[in-house]
């Protein structure tokens, strides 16, 4: 998929585990794993807002666009 999520990198920078983030934002670990592995088809603004708030980051820090054709 052209949009990838760099959640693991931001989590590493903040020294936070996926489980901790899950508890803080109220999203299941399963759903966060879907997000982390870039398998998600869509992300709700409310989820993005909660993650950005807890990780103190911007949406742009989490989402990256890569051209599929370049692969």
């Amino acid at each position: 998929m052209a949009i990838s999520v760099k959640l693991d990198r931001v989590l590493l920078d903040r020294g936070m585990s996926l489980t901790e983030l899950s508890e803080r934002v109220g999203v299941t670990i399963a759903n966060l794993s879907i997000l982390k592995t870039s398998k998600a088809k869509a992300i709700r603004f409310s989820t993005l807002e909660a993650i950005c708030k807890e990780l103190d980051c911007q949406p742009g820090d989490l989402l990256f666009y890569e051209d599929d054709a370049a692969d």
Partner: peptide
């Protein structure tokens, strides 16, 4: 449904 399931 797949899209719904994969919406976080």
């Amino acid at each position: 449904k797949e899209e719904q399931d994969l919406t976080v």
